[in-house]
């Protein structure tokens, strides 16, 4: 397995640093050869930047990928948005020499050159393909007997033309990784539905965006779970801080704890919920955190 550089993006280091810490603990715990991607910027966010100007989007994405190429490492993302942006940009640049030339002309201004020698990975597909649920299970210290509502999010698996992740209607690879930790992935209505945050909708049309999250949370609440597990900090923010906003705007209260898979895995590896910042979420559920302490 090729060594990886850890691409942080924006929301994880700057809003949910516990996910960053959890990811690093998990990568160490699994013996993965990783390094910081020093000097990386925003991926840039696909909803706004890709919509605004394709060449700018590709150029900033390429700069992040080049930083990893220079270290001879693949890029490991922990966010569906970063994955979507960087993987799609990498795909476009590898397959369109004209665009690559245009981007390299700009990168030349900062003495950089995109070669196309690195792959972009997402931690969930990375763990699923490089380790698989059985090896992940071997790495944990204590099984977590939790009922989990899993949220894949969109850009981990779509657009499927540029991914290699199987069915987009009923995927199971993420469920398998959660169940490897002793948890049970509970089915719920519209499980594959979007959280409502992407495409620049949350940033410009907050109320509409929250109506989508509200529907998602209602279906999750009806399923009767202990927590939500996601693979993306933007979904995480929408489903965690979104609960505060939804209570405020629509009067619906859920109080469902939200964890990124890195946090859940770190806890199953023996770290405390405080070690990985679960207590720094907006939804604070003491009873749940007590259970995680084991």
């Amino acid at each position: 397995m090729k060594p990886v550089s850890l691409f942080l993006g924006c929301i994880i280091p700057n809003r949910y640093p516990g996910i960053e810490k959890a990811t690093k603990l998990v990568l160490d715990g699994l013996g993965i050869d990783w390094a910081d991607l020093a000097g990386a910027s925003c991926c840039p966010a696909p909803g706004v930047f890709r919509s605004f100007d394709k060449v700018t989007w590709l150029t900033l994405a390429a700069r992040n990928i080049v930083l990893s190429e220079q270290m001879d490492r693949d890029v490991l993302t922990i966010c569906n948005g970063c994955f979507g942006s960087l993987a799609d940009a990498n795909h476009e640049l590898k397959n369109d020499p004209g665009l690559a030339r245009q981007v390299n002309k700009h990168l030349g201004e900062v003495d950089m050159k995109y070669k196309g020698s690195a792959e972009v990975r997402h931690i969930i597909e990375f763990l699923s393909k490089e380790f698989g649920p059985d090896k992940v299970k071997d790495a944990i210290k204590r099984p977590l007997e939790l009922k989990v509502a899993l949220h894949y999010g969109c850009h981990l698996i779509k657009p499927s033309k540029d991914r290699d992740m199987g069915t987009v209607e009923n995927p199971v690879f993420f469920d398998e990784l959660v169940e490897a930790l002793g948890a049970k992935s509970i089915d719920y209505e519209d499980k594959m539905a979007c959280c409502g945050a992407g495409g620049g909708v949350r940033s410009a049309l907050l109320d509409k965006s929250l109506e989508m999250a509200d529907a998602k949370l209602l279906h999750i609440a009806e399923a009767g779970v202990d927590c939500i597990v996601n693979a993306c900090p933007f979904c995480h923010l929408q489903l965690d801080f979104g609960q505060v906003e939804i209570k405020d705007k629509f009067g619906h209260e859920y109080n469902i704890p939200v964890l990124h898979y890195s946090q859940l895995l770190a806890i199953a590896m023996g770290y405390s919920p405080e070690d990985v910042g679960v207590d720094l979420n907006f939804i604070k559920n003491e009873e749940f955190i007590d259970r995680l302490r084991g």
């Binding site: 020093a38 910027s41 700009h106 900062v110």
Partner: peptide, 28 residues
């Protein structure tokens, strides 16, 4: 959380931020 106050991104490396600023300038 026992982490550095700033992440290992453009936040910590002014030269890297200058590269980004240059690029958004030249792309228009």
């Amino acid at each position: 959380l026992g982490m550095d106050e700033l992440p290992e991104t453009v936040h910590k490396y002014p030269d890297a931020l200058e590269q980004v600023k240059k690029l958004v300038e030249v792309t228009g």
